[in-house]
Simulated scan of single mutants.
Amino acid sequence: MLIEVDAELDACGLFCPEPVMLLHTKVRELGAGKVLKVTATDPSTQRDIPKFCLFLEHQLLDSSEQDGTYTYLIRKKL
């Protein structure tokens, strides 16, 4: 399944709480229903980003890890 990405956020090299702070700002800039791709290297994002989505009612479409880089696809709530 191919998901069209509307915006990207590179949080690689940043540590908690910076990735989620940047994510919060970036999501505000997106229109409802738009998809944001986030890449990060901080393992705490595995916990923080799903909780962020759950708390703010955004949809975590996908999450994956490859060679220490974490990728998330998030659809902003409608």
Results as ranks from 00 to 15, higher is better:
residue 59 Q to D: 11
residue 4 E to G: 00
residue 53 C to Q: 09
residue 30 L to D: 06
residue 41 T to Y: 12
residue 70 Y to S: 02
residue 43 P to L: 13
residue 49 I to N: 06
residue 43 P to R: 03
residue 70 Y to L: 08
residue 76 K to F: 02
residue 61 L to K: 07
residue 76 K to H: 02
residue 70 Y to M: 04
residue 68 G to R: 05
residue 32 A to F: 08
residue 60 L to Y: 01
residue 57 E to F: 06
residue 74 I to A: 05
residue 53 C to E: 12
residue 34 K to Y: 03
residue 5 V to Q: 12
residue 19 P to V: 06
residue 29 E to I: 06
residue 23 L to N: 05
residue 36 L to T: 01
residue 77 K to R: 14
residue 46 Q to R: 12
residue 40 A to Y: 03
residue 12 C to S: 14
residue 62 D to I: 00
residue 56 L to K: 09
residue 44 S to A: 10
residue 51 K to D: 15
residue 42 D to K: 00
residue 18 E to S: 10
residue 73 L to Y: 02
residue 74 I to R: 06
residue 44 S to K: 10
residue 4 E to H: 13
residue 61 L to H: 03
residue 8 E to W: 02
residue 2 L to G: 02
residue 71 T to S: 13
residue 21 M to W: 06
residue 66 Q to P: 00
residue 21 M to K: 08
residue 60 L to A: 05
residue 22 L to I: 01
residue 66 Q to E: 15
residue 46 Q to D: 14
residue 46 Q to H: 08
residue 57 E to S: 12
residue 72 Y to R: 01
residue 72 Y to K: 02
residue 58 H to E: 08
residue 64 S to Q: 06
residue 38 V to N: 05
residue 73 L to H: 03
residue 32 A to S: 14
residue 47 R to C: 11
residue 66 Q to R: 09
residue 13 G to M: 03
residue 6 D to L: 04
residue 34 K to A: 10
residue 61 L to I: 06
residue 61 L to P: 02
residue 47 R to F: 15
residue 40 A to G: 07
residue 9 L to K: 05
residue 48 D to Q: 10
residue 3 I to R: 14
residue 4 E to W: 14
residue 62 D to S: 13
residue 32 A to T: 10
residue 46 Q to G: 14
residue 75 R to N: 04
residue 74 I to L: 13
residue 14 L to M: 15
residue 14 L to V: 03
residue 33 G to R: 14
residue 9 L to D: 12
residue 20 V to Q: 06
